[in-house]
Design a protein around this nucleic acid. Structure first.
Lengths: 253, 253
DNA sequence: TGTACATCAGTGAACGCGCGTTCACTGATGTAC
DNA sequence: TGTACATCAGTGAACGCGCGTTCACTGATGTAC
């Protein structure tokens, strides 16, 4: 069971649950999303049906419109929840110790823990994973509100790299190719746009590559490309993550 | 425009087009798949509708059942076509020169050409790509007939590696981690099961990792994860492929 | 504390739509003599 | 070359189903005096 929450657009900013009505609304919103997630698992994003959700909740279909103005809005809520849940898992695993306190966990260890947390979440929530990292849902256009939650994972990746850089735990590995030309420009622009800039393009590009490698591997595992070859893909995953740690340049623990 | 074909289950093995009827059947089968592909692009795999295909072709929906016994069978035909088209593109780009003849293209060059051919095909046929490498279609179970076509790309990858090995063009790079334990076992088993065995587990695993990295990158590009960062992702792609060539161990040209 | 009014969650019927699949049929194409 | 029969592609109607969304309504909950 994962924690999910996206507040419904409760008119006033009143505390959650001041009146019975408000408490009921919060509760039902949660139940609607729970049931919707269940249907996602059975039928995929396209199979998500307001009528079926209402039916399962013992309501009439039109009642759902008091909670979400349309099917796509419900889908958006699910997408944001999924990004947030995954982002939280990654952040939790990758966060360093509180600044100044206790001996910090090595960056390499935190990075590996983050990769594993991401995979664990994906395996526990395969359909929500598919919702955000699988093929786009046709006819659905993600609103801007998804951008923030979607960038939590890549930002967590970059965060570890930046931390490692600051603490001298990062070194360009010998076999990393230099980043040049258009790529260097893009990386520099991206680096400058980060919440806290200062990550050199070379390191940023290696982090991005690791990010794509990780999700490529997880997608192959979940989408069935390894059936019959690396079927329990635990060993392959462990190997790849260790290899990626080398590539990104984390100093061995 | 790409070439696509999967013969309909024409009763006898008679040459294609002996009679007018047979020619018409082959022709219509092609048109049905073409129209289905068009709909795939508009509505995704779930949006593929026999009735809509028939409508567009000016037939009545029940007529399609003379060609495909069900919607899922049509989907299977599309999936097989997609795997075959992509496989053909990869094989074409990765194949060495005829054995014994002419100076062979270096393995590294062929490998990079193969990666690029795969990406080019994916960008030209994004919905067919999503069909085979995106989230699984819920409720659809791929029949065994898809296994062969699906393995063409990974086999092409392994083929280049084996070729490079034979011609002394492959060397374990210094930063590659040793393959041990359960992973080594899986790799050895897989290696032994290959059409032509003899690829050492270490090299095989590196090829598999490169395969997942490549498709992870392409999926991110096509599914929109790079929007706003590495937006034209040409430069990133070129960099990653070169980096992968180093990782797999191809001798620089 | 008690009443009058406003808010709003949930109802039930309806609109208009699309789908996969089956089945008895017709008429053209193909084949055997 | 010509006729009789078999094959089979395509028709049209039907079955039974599900969907998103709108709308006038009812009755319970909340609020102001």
């Amino acid at each position: 069971v994962t924690s999910h929450d996206t507040e419904p657009s409760t008119g006033g900013g009143a505390g959650r649950g001041r009146t019975a009505r408000e408490r009921a609304r919060v509760e039902l919103t949660r139940e609607i999303k729970e049931e919707a997630r269940r249907q996602l698992a059975d039928n995929g994003a396209n199979g998500l049906s307001l009528r079926a959700v209402a039916r399962e909740l013992g309501m009439v279909s039109s009642a759902l419109y008091r909670y979400y103005p349309s099917r796509d809005d419900l889908l958006t809520a699910l997408i944001i929840d999924a990004y947030d849940a995954l982002g939280e898992a990654a952040e939790g695993a990758m966060a360093g110790a509180a600044p100044g306190a206790a001996p910090a966990t090595p960056a390499r260890t935190r990075w590996i823990a983050g990769c594993r947390a991401i995979r664990d979440w994906a395996r526990s929530n395969p359909h929500e994973y598919a919702l955000i990292y699988g093929s786009p849902v046709p006819g659905y256009h993600a609103p801007e509100a998804t951008i923030g939650p979607a960038s939590r994972v890549p930002l967590a990746f970059v965060g570890v790299v930046r931390g490692a850089l600051a603490s001298g735990e990062l070194a360009a590995p010998g076999e990393a190719l230099p980043v040049t030309g258009a790529l260097a420009g893009q990386a520099a622009a991206l680096s400058a746009a980060l919440p806290s800039p200062g990550v050199p393009p070379d390191a940023l590009v290696r982090a991005v590559i690791a990010w794509t490698q990780l999700f490529g591997l997880i997608s192959f595992e979940l989408f069935g490309q390894f059936v019959g070859s690396f079927d329990p893909s635990e060993a392959l995953f462990t190997h790849v993550v260790a290899q990626l740690a080398v590539f990104v340049g984390f100093r061995p623990a």
